[in-house]
Design a protein around this nucleic acid. Structure first.
Lengths: 246, 246
DNA sequence: AAGTGGTCTAGACCACGCG
DNA sequence: GCGTGGTCTAGACCACTTT
């Protein structure tokens, strides 16, 4: 009898494992499966959705790839703190180390403006037609400014989010928990350049000293929504780190 | 009856999908499944190994993650050109674009020396005890020197490979095809620094102009073997690119 | 129509972690 | 010893691509 259910499963775009995957992801994003806790066992999930372990495991495998959970044999599937950053460039000391005091200050915006021409990537037609939301942040380590960061996104794709609403100062965390939007990938261009007068002033360094400039486009799970960034990093004391595993 | 076979499958460390995965990977590395060709169909592989599609698909899934193949629904599993570079930093234009003429020249070694203290990562005890193989390369784009690259690895882990033996000038390709060693991941530190006299001379630029310095440790599938790198990049005309997807 | 990969069922035994 | 995730069998139907 339950085979009739099976017949229904192969339907157009109604993949059962997607349903399970989306359900669990949303519960993680809204904190109903808190960070550090364990998901219900695979067999329990089978019961909840009337399916088999093969299908449940496929859903969990996807969440594993997305970085929401990790698996511990003999124990269960644990909800992870943050998404595992795969290849994301991070300032040494940012996120993780306790030896550093980290602070982020929003110095401009968010406000609606025209696109800024410094962006190293070509905008889509839809983005060109739209205005954009812009904001600027300065990141501090041990009370010294280390990164000056400009960000833009198309204002027709996402409302202006006030900086007061940033969860723990993080724009991405806000996107995930309040809008269910996730970062799917990114492209970056890195250059070594002399510091301009404005950058030098913001980072408290000499004009012309070597600065790492990063231009980045983040792609998100919301089609058409990209986040563009323009970062100026003083790497003298805190180099940029990037680790990845296959 | 055939269930008795199932009983045997769960054995210690003899995962059937690993056997299949290793077999296919080795055939790809040695060119028996040439780049661009299609693997035998999943059902054929089932026949060859006396197993079911679930197991074969698990093996192919792993090869997919490792970047050796891609899947095309309705057609088959295709052998990929190179391993998909996940988060690897590459000079814009290197590997892929036809607009650039790329050349690599080995300027020093390979030869056996002492470890160089510039390496930003701490060596393992085994590495400290061993001498190391060192070589230096300069990478050109359109006949202009763009990257000066120093490399080291522990000489007790891998014999000295003569630069003449580098397949297409690539050390990693040589490792894969002749030694079945793959890169499993890497850690990198990036800094923006003024060019030293030696770097300036090698890259044909002014002493003191901003240079991107990358210190990298590649981890390989051979336990204990790491490859260390020390790169100086002139990013004025060719920025460094880094893209990744989840 | 035939062949390929994608999804799914309904079981089974194994290795691991913990009380 | 029991529950958890890890591996595997032996089938089935679906969607996509090509002949």
């Amino acid at each position: 009898m339950s085979n009739f259910v099976a017949v229904k499963t192969g339907n157009i775009k109604n993949r059962k494992y997607h349903t399970i995957q989306d359900y669990i992801r949303k519960r993680i994003q809204t904190g109903k499966y808190p960070v550090g806790s364990y998901l219900p066992s695979e067999n329990e999930i089978c019961g909840q959705f009337g399916t088999t372990r093969t299908t449940v495991r496929k859903a969990l495998d996807e969440l594993l790839k997305e970085g929401f959970i990790e698996k511990e044999q003999g124990k269960g599937s644990k909800v992870l703190e943050r998404r595992k950053s795969l290849g994301l460039l991070t300032v040494k000391g940012f996120s993780g180390s306790i030896d550093y005091k980290v602070k982020t200050v929003v110095t401009k915006g968010p406000k609606i403006t025209e696109w800024n021409p410094v962006i190293a990537f070509s905008l889509t037609e839809e983005e060109k037609k739209s205005n954009c939301v812009y904001f600027q942040r300065v990141r501090y380590i041990n009370d010294r400014p280390v990164v000056l960061e400009n960000n833009w996104y198309a204002s027709n794709e996402l409302q202006l989010i006030d900086s007061d609403a940033f969860i723990e100062g993080s724009f991405f965390k806000t996107l995930s928990q309040n809008h269910f939007i996730e970062v799917m990938g990114a492209e970056q261009e890195l250059r070594s350049i002399p510091a301009s007068k404005e950058v030098a002033k913001n980072l408290g360094i000499q004009e012309g000293s070597p600065i790492l400039h990063i231009s980045v486009r983040f792609r998100t799970s919301k089609p058409g929504l990209n986040l563009y960034g323009d970062l100026y990093c003083n790497t003298t004391d805190y180099p940029i780190r990037n680790s990845y595993f296959l």
